[in-house]
């Protein structure tokens, strides 16, 4: 799937200050029977978001109109558990373009980048400041500048740099995915096949 370009994003944030959010909580297994990537956003955090009869639970942040935006800010160790890519699809499907946390599970990070969702890993202290600022003023904006690998709280900071693999950065900036890259090196793959057949 070709991904959206990600250069610079300025947005308000949705805070989920819970640690160890695993992929089963992001998208429960019973929703894995779909055969397209669409529609997972409706079931993002389904068990926290809806009660047993499917009514929105008032106290969950996605049901609270005070908070909105394209940046999800989550507690430490986000995205552990099964390798289901459906978790990334659900977050993208809901409308998020970036997730900020102080630690991400490996496979989740990969799956996100493969779907144009930017995982931004910040220090624990910075994350704390983010949560507090958003809590105080839900209209608080954050700028994520991928070119300069910088995340900044508006209007006056603080700001922090984040890491990203240079290859992945290029892909995100240009809206390429891995498949585009691999299709482009077809010649090399062909020569490998010839040499090893």
């Amino acid at each position: 799937m070709p991904i959206d370009k990600f250069v610079k994003l300025e947005s308000t944030c949705v805070p989920v200050p819970i640690e160890n959010v695993d992929t089963d909580q992001i998208i429960p297994a019973r929703f894995l029977k779909a055969t397209t990537r669409e529609g997972f956003g409706d079931n993002l955090f389904a068990d926290w978001r809806y009660d047993k009869s499917g009514n929105p639970k008032k106290d969950f942040v996605l049901n609270d109109p005070t908070f909105s935006g394209q940046i999800l800010v989550a507690g430490q160790n986000f995205g552990s558990g099964s390798s289901r890519e459906h978790a990334a699809w659900a977050i993208v499907g809901y409308g998020f373009k970036a997730v900020v946390s102080s630690f991400f599970a490996d496979i989740f990070k990969n799956n996100s980048l493969n779907n144009g969702l930017l995982p931004v890993q910040v220090s624990k202290e910075f994350l704390e400041v983010l949560f507090q600022s958003i809590e105080k003023d839900p209209k608080t904006k954050v700028v994520i500048d991928l070119e300069n690998q910088k995340i900044t709280l508006q209007p006056n900071g603080p700001s922090e740099s984040f890491d990203i693999n240079p290859y992945k950065k290029k892909c995100m900036l240009n809206g390429f995915d891995d498949i585009d890259y691999l299709l482009n090196i077809n010649n090399e793959i062909e020569s490998w096949e010839k040499a090893h057949s």
Binding site: S83, E85, N114, D178, I179, L183, N186, I189, E193
Partner: peptide, 18 residues
């Protein structure tokens, strides 16, 4: 080893994986 769905697509399309 196990892979995600984008990677399944990658291998179907190119027989390679990053």
């Amino acid at each position: 080893f196990g892979i995600g769905t984008s990677e399944v697509e990658m291998v179907l399309a190119t027989q390679t994986l990053l």
